[in-house]
Design a binder for these strands. Structure first.
Length: 176
DNA sequence: AGCGGGATTTTCT
DNA sequence: GAAAATCCCGCTT
């Protein structure tokens, strides 16, 4: 997973199509990443924008870790940390597509919903994605023609930045 | 079908 | 004290 060391903007589109293996209730659930968003320290909307805090500490750590944050009092969202130590960049996983045994899953079409469905909570914050119970498996990058780049949703700052990426036409992408 | 409020943690002004 | 990388449910058109 060497590509994780690039900037969040480079990593976000390459993460599309990659597979997450989540061990839940004694079974392994696999999902494909179909929608991502890039965040880095120069981004006004990023948690790392105003510097390192206890909450964003993981974002400034080594690439390949999981950054989980709690928001709006009820929801968790998960990110893959990218870049090097101290960079404060990460890619938000916005939507995934269930594959192999994922029929039991539903509602994976939003950052908070997919975390709830996969049982991701604060206990997995800082988790190394090379280890169970949650592994990131790299795949061949999607062809550029299959990737749509657009603006972000649900934020008020830096709305015009083209930092959101998703697989064109995939039904599991959070709706427009 | 569409709008509006609520839940409730962490951080910043 | 208020807003935030959100979603769900209930009430109104």
């Amino acid at each position: 997973m060497d590509f994780l060391h690039g900037s969040a903007l480079d990593v976000a589109p390459r993460l599309l199509g990659c597979v997450l293996e989540r061990e839940l209730d004694g079974r392994t659930v696999r999902v494909r990443v179909v929608e991502t968003e890039a965040y880095d320290q120069s981004d006004e909307a990023s948690h790392s924008y105003r510097g390192r805090t206890p909450r964003t500490d993981v974002m400034f750590g080594p690439a390949g870790r999981l950054y989980v944050y709690f928001t709006y009092g009820m929801h968790y969202c998960c990110n893959v940390v990218t870049g090097g130590e101290g960079e404060g960049s990460a890619v938000l996983i916005r939507a995934v597509e269930p594959i192999g045994g994922g029929e039991l899953l539903s509602a994976t079409d939003g950052p908070a919903k997919l975390c709830r469905t996969l049982g991701i909570d604060k206990g997995l914050n800082g988790h190394d994605l090379r280890e169970p119970p949650l592994k990131l498996v790299a795949t061949e990058p999607l062809p550029a023609a299959a990737i749509t780049t657009t603006t972000r949703v649900g934020i008020s700052r830096a709305r015009d930045e083209l930092r959101r990426f998703y697989e064109t036409g995939n039904p599991y992408v959070s709706k427009k």
